Amino acid sequence: MKPGDLLADRFRLDAVLDNTSDFSTVWIGDDTVLQRPVAIRTLKLSDHRTAQVLTGAQRAAEINDPSCVHVLDIGRAEEFNTAFIVTAYVQADTLSDVLADGPLDAVEAADLVAEIADTIARVHDRGIAHGCLDPLQILLAPTGDAIVLGLGTALAVHHPERDAEMVDDVRSLGAMLYACLTARWPMPSSTGLPAAVRDGADLVPPRKARAHVPTPLDRLCRRALGETVAGEEPFDNAREFSVALRAHLTRSGTTAAQRLDRRRSTGPVTTLKGVRQQGRRGVIALIALAVSIVIGGLLLLGVQVLNSVFSEPG
Rank of each mutant, 00 (worst) to 15 (best):
D9R: 15
R10G: 05
L13K: 09
D14W: 06
D14R: 13
V16D: 02
L17M: 10
L17D: 01
S21E: 08
D22F: 02
F23A: 01
F23S: 01
F23G: 00
T25I: 15
T25V: 15
V26R: 05
W27H: 06
I28S: 09
I28H: 09
D30C: 12
D30Q: 14
D30W: 12
T32Q: 14
T32C: 11
T32K: 10
V33F: 10
V33M: 14
Q35T: 13
R36F: 10
P37M: 11
V38M: 06
V38D: 09
A39E: 08
A39Q: 08
R41I: 04
R41L: 02
R41E: 11
L43G: 00
L43W: 00
K44S: 05
L45C: 04
H48Q: 04
R49H: 12
R49G: 01
T50G: 06
Q52S: 08
V53T: 12
V53M: 09
V53S: 03
L54N: 02
L54E: 01
L54D: 00
T55L: 11
Q58P: 00
Q58K: 12
R59T: 07
A60V: 03
A60Y: 05
A61W: 02
E62F: 00
N64D: 12
N64I: 03
D65T: 09
P66C: 03
S67A: 15
C68V: 15
V69M: 11
V69A: 14
H70L: 13
H70D: 10
H70W: 04
V71W: 04
L72V: 10
L72T: 11
L72W: 05
I74L: 04
G75E: 04
G75V: 06
G75K: 06
E78N: 13
E78Y: 13
F80E: 05
N81P: 01
T82L: 14
T82Y: 06
T82A: 14
T82C: 10
T82K: 13
